[in-house]
């Protein structure tokens, strides 16, 4: 199972799905899928590090919380992130996101993200690995 991300369609918005060997890896890939809604992650240099810690009542709610924390950091720092490294301990998350300030000429950002929802939210085993997905409102 190689870690990867994809988008899935939702009426007016976009679903993000991350897959990995562990739940943490699936969370990291879901975050990358979210960046890809805005810009090509390959154009975003992981120059600055932002530390993130959060918790939720369960693993699924934690995925929404994690994505919402990133949305907040992107909005207030006016940054995009392209590398993530996190650890999960039950429904607690600790880790970092690396990225750089938005550069319109290089990133050509398409759309800003309003929030991560609880629609089509799922964190669970799939085959050999884990999947983490939800819909984000743009």
């Amino acid at each position: 199972m190689t870690a990867h991300w994809e988008h899935f369609p939702h009426g007016a918005d976009v679903g993000v799905r991350g897959t990995g060997k562990t739940p943490a890896q699936a969370f990291e890939q879901a975050a990358l899928a979210m960046t890809a809604i805005i810009a090509d992650p390959n154009t975003v240099e992981p120059r600055e590090r932002v530390r993130i810690e959060c918790a939720a009542p369960n693993e699924e709610l934690l995925l929404t919380e994690w994505l919402n924390r990133l949305i907040y950091e992107m909005a207030t720092r006016r940054m995009l992130f392209s590398r993530f490294s996190i650890e999960l301990d039950g429904a607690r998350l600790k880790g970092s996101a690396w990225g750089e300030p938005v550069d319109r000429s290089r990133h050509h950002p398409a759309v800003e993200i309003k929030g991560a929802t609880y629609t089509a939210l799922r964190v669970g085993r799939e085959g050999e690995g884990w999947v983490a997905q939800t819909v984000v409102d743009v």
Partner: peptide
Amino acid sequence: HQIGTDFLKRMVA
């Protein structure tokens, strides 16, 4: 957007 996020979270908890 953040008010929506904050209160959805509280109403879901």
